[in-house]
Design a binder for these strands. Structure first.
Lengths: 239, 239
DNA sequence: TGACATATGTTCGAATCGAAAATAAGTAAA
DNA sequence: TTTACTTATTTTCGATTCGAACATATGTCA
């Protein structure tokens, strides 16, 4: 560092501005029972006490945004190893009544089986089914107990996550993050149908997927079916 | 607001955390002389004094992210009326040596003619040609004076902006933001070719564009050509 | 051994797309 | 006035893609 740069830094006072707080919020999604679902936490503090919220937390001064999201996944959602991707930053002035908070939303994907342990931990966590509307309109979350009211602007964040997932499905291999290591083409198609909300043509879907070069046949077959078992495939990471 | 909520807010101390600062940075792009270009400002302060940076500024405590981006467009780039869209948030810990700064990057589009007035304002502003690499790899900026060194992580932000623009070109009408109100199909194709870096088939391009329903023929013709003048079209906003 | 259910593969017509050729409409020079 | 020239616009044609229907394969189970 040059001398005049050191001088500059010494004279710089970062407290000239009143600063917004920064958080990350996580839309942790999966496909459960043939429909998109997201993990929600019941708020046990004001504001919005009792409503359901996305897992989130403040970004610490010495961690990157990605690190903060990864930490929230571990500490708040009690899971790890998820596919993660930054979604969008939300910064409306009144989105949190306590103070000015800007949140960087992430979306994360895991196969449904991975949620079981975390959900057993307590009634403060739920895996809510997401009713995804057509092009836009807010997504709505429902539980075994019925519709869930979401805290803050989390319904808006959730809606964007569903749209993003839909949009990326065709040209990126995100779908595989929702399946176990080995899976059948039918399972993959079920995931695509659940996310897109449309039923797909089976041979065409098979052709498209195989042509993309994302799949690697294992030669193994699924077990436990009372009919012809399907071949198991593995996701082939990019070359 | 309920009584217990008021009580909660009174007892809340937001100064428990050391907070990152939040800025917005603007990738203001256009097509100039058949190539993508972006507006850069020469830094006249440390750090990175003399290098070229994206126009940016701190997010004020009472303005949304979008408002902050709009203000930066007006105050730093001295322009208005641009198409704007949030790009991505960058939050690596050491991206600014002064202090922890998280920046929300926006990308903005305007026709090339709109830059003339701002560029006349002084030598601190330049419209740099962006050499766009293939799939990834950092974008490089060049001036009439040669290659430009970019401050902070702005080369990375610029690269992402170019990729985003490329990606959206086919399924969203962003291309029109780079053209005047009335334009010919050839001008539109030039914009697409400059951004995608590929030369396109003329009749096919015409068909695809007309089929999308984004275009409205005006019946007018361009003037000043020494050959058959092309019809002028207008962008038809969504229904 | 045969019924059954689903996986897997094949075929065919419609739609899409790129390349090339044909036609149209201006300016400018002869 | 006519002709050459340049680019816009339309048409045509073959290759490719894609969805739907159909045909075949391969397991389990009665």
């Amino acid at each position: 560092m040059r001398d005049d740069e050191v001088e500059f830094l010494a004279g710089y006072d970062p407290r000239h501005y009143e600063r917004p707080a920064v958080t990350v919020d996580l839309v942790l999604m999966t496909i459960a029972d043939g429909a998109p679902a997201a993990l929600l936490i019941r708020r046990d503090e004001h504001p919005d006490l009792g409503l359901w919220a996305l897992p989130g937390g403040f970004v610490r001064i010495d961690e990157s945004l990605d690190d903060a999201a990864r930490r929230v996944l571990s500490e708040k959602a009690r899971m790890d190893g998820a596919y993660m991707e930054q979604l969008y930053s939300f910064g409306a002035v009144g989105r949190d009544p306590r103070m000015r908070i800007i949140t960087v939303a992430y979306f994360a994907l895991l196969p449904a089986e991975r949620f079981a342990a975390a959900l057993r931990a307590g009634p403060g966590l739920t895996l809510a089914r997401i009713a995804a509307p057509g092009a836009d309109g807010p997504a709505t979350a429902t539980d075994a107990d019925g519709p869930l009211a979401l805290a803050f602007d989390h319904a808006e964040i959730l809606s964007l996550a569903v749209r993003r997932l839909r949009g990326k499905l065709d040209y990126s291999p995100v779908g595989f993050a929702l399946l176990p290591d080995l899976f059948t083409l039918r399972q993959l198609q079920d995931v695509h149908e659940a996310i897109s909300g449309m039923s797909l043509n089976k041979p065409a879907f098979r052709r498209r997927m195989l042509d993309k070069g994302w799949l690697e046949p294992t030669g193994e077959r699924e077990t436990g079916a009372s009919f012809r078992p399907a071949e198991l495939y593995r996701f082939k990471p990019a070359i």
